[in-house]
């Protein structure tokens, strides 16, 4: 179920372990505050993120899904992030057809040195999701 009106959006973040997860660690080490709406899940690579997972997350009540990968050219596994980028592009089209705003899915490149950026991405995403309101999830239809 989506969160009720005025309530806090819920976000699942699939973070690649080499860049974005480490970037989130750095945000912690640097004590950079951001809203607590996101539950991170560590994956080896953004390329591991199966589009089905994203659909599952929306079905299970997520208001937003964040996929964090290494910057283009920096993927620890060479090219997994490019695969993620292609999948996300297609997935956004599919989301539109399912009646889910494509902005609820975000793919961001966050390196291990970008703690500040991780915090900013989460803060921005939370703000945007609040503006969008709760997701009309598939089970609501």
């Amino acid at each position: 179920m989506g969160s009720g009106n005025g309530s806090e959006p819920r976000i699942v973040a699939f973070l690649c372990r080499w860049c974005s997860y480490a970037g989130a660690d750095l945000a912690g080490t640097s004590r950079i505050k951001y809203p607590p709406n996101v539950v991170p899940i560590r994956v080896p690579c953004s390329g591991r993120v199966d589009p089905q997972w994203v659909l599952d997350a929306f079905e299970k009540g997520a208001d937003g899904v964040l996929i964090g990968g290494c910057h283009p050219g920096d993927c620890h596994y060479v090219s997994g992030n490019y695969k993620a980028r292609r999948r996300v592009a297609l997935l956004k089209k599919l989301l539109t057809q399912l009646g889910i705003e494509p902005e609820r899915l975000r793919l961001e490149w966050i390196s291990a040195t970008e703690g500040q950026r991780f915090a900013r991405v989460v803060s921005d995403f939370v703000r945007e999701l609040k503006e969008l309101g709760p997701a009309r999830v598939m089970s609501d239809r």
């Binding site: 699942v12 899940i41 994956v43 080896p44 690579c45 390329g47 591991r48 993120v49 199966d50 589009p51 089905q52 997972w53 599952d56 997350a57 299970k60 997520a62 620890h76 596994y77 090219s79 997994g80 695969k83 999948r87």
Partner: peptide, 29 residues
């Protein structure tokens, strides 16, 4: 190296990543 890019692409679900399978991930989400 265990990146799992192939796993996410497999249309028949034949590939899996040890200790980060789809079923496991679903429960985590």
């Amino acid at each position: 190296e265990g990146c799992g890019t192939c796993v996410a692409a497999c249309p028949s679900g034949a590939l899996t990543l040890r200790n980060l399978g789809d079923e496991q991930l679903g429960a985590m989400v």
